[in-house]
Design a protein around this nucleic acid. Structure first.
Lengths: 195, 195
DNA sequence: CTCCTTATGTTGCCTAAGCAACACATTTTC
DNA sequence: GAAAATGTGTTGCTTAGGCAACATAAGGAG
């Protein structure tokens, strides 16, 4: 949203990208658990010590991978800022489902561990995004900031919960009708705050 | 031929590759004359000063580009070391023609300048390659080294001359029959040295 | 012509990345 | 169960790369 104007050394930037790309590439043929820091460094054509200068371990790396990926997804989906709670919540559910499909489409990560790392990061991103959206949503202008923050936290978990429920239930219901069923529940809690 | 075992810093290696790739990419949309060092550095995500640490100018860069490209071409073609002068000369002509097609297929370089830079490097590579081949060709074992060196020089120019003649004559004759016509001329000068 | 812009090389100081070696856990293998 | 092998983090010291500033040169526009 705001282009955090912290000058980053081009070498560091390039190295981070090399590492991220290396992990993506490795996840095509191996499970996340199977991939070693050594392999990542090698594939990224950097030194193992350099890896640790950027990430504390491979879990921190996958955190950033998910973060970045989901952020991009979200930004692209929100080009035309949805102005009603309903449209906004629809867009969020949509984005989560698509992101999930993309990640599972090109990665091998059977263990739930990977998913739970992803879940944490995504909820974090969601909360931040929702927080910003709520702050710009004029009907809530008069509501105390703390209330909006609580709402953002709750909504991020709720949205993710609903999406996950659908994703892990073999997607028997089609996405659109699932979204139609879910959105009113979410919007309800926003409306409740209005008065 | 011999894997020159000089340990090269991985950073330097990576940077050289970034620069070379950047030039290749730029040559798809611009003429060699139009490309600036600035653009190359930018596309390679390195600093302009770093460019000059590797190459004295963009002409030195294109020299290496051609050298590397042609070397690879030659090596691949010479997997099964041709054991007779005839087969060797055929392979050389073949390689030159293919390399030329590849370069002109993916580069914009109208000016003859580019071609003449390329010509110099290719002849240099050819001479070196031919020199090595002649040194391993047993029937010439008894011929003084100096004689073989002169022969290598002459052959490199001759081979290139013939290939260029064909390349710049709209390729009206088909490649195979052109090669059949040319090879005897080249082989002749080798045979002459035998006795 | 003069000013302005743009490209080329060069330099010295600073920072990120490479490397080797270490201590420390896991495995694996015999 | 000891020994070899493999993976994880960490630590100085060295080196390549980033940056800003400079001098210079070659067009372009007024």
């Amino acid at each position: 949203m705001l282009g955090n104007a912290v000058k980053i050394d081009p070498r560091a930037k390039r190295t981070r990208k090399l590492i991220l790309d290396a992990l993506i590439q490795l996840l095509r043929t191996r499970t996340f658990e199977e991939v070693t820091v050594n392999e990542i460094a090698e594939a990224a054509t950097i030194n193992r010590a350099t890896f640790y200068a950027h990430f504390s371990d491979k879990y921190a790396l996958v955190d950033e991978l998910i973060r970045d990926g989901f952020m991009m997804f979200l930004d692209r989906r929100m080009q035309h800022y949805p102005d009603t709670p309903t449209r906004y919540m629809q867009a969020l559910l949509w984005a989560i489902a698509d992101h999930w499909a993309m990640v599972h489409g090109q990665c091998n990560q059977y263990h739930r561990f990977f998913d739970s790392l992803a879940e944490n990061q995504i909820k974090r991103m969601l909360e931040q995004h929702i927080q910003t959206w709520l702050d710009h949503y004029s009907p809530l202008r008069s509501v105390p900031a703390m209330q909006r923050q609580l709402l953002a936290t709750m909504l991020s978990w709720s949205v993710y919960a609903l999406a996950a429920r659908w994703l892990y239930s073999d997607r028997c219901q089609n996405l659109e009708s699932f979204i139609n069923d879910s959105v009113p529940l979410l919007v309800g809690s926003i409306e409740a705050l209005k008065g």
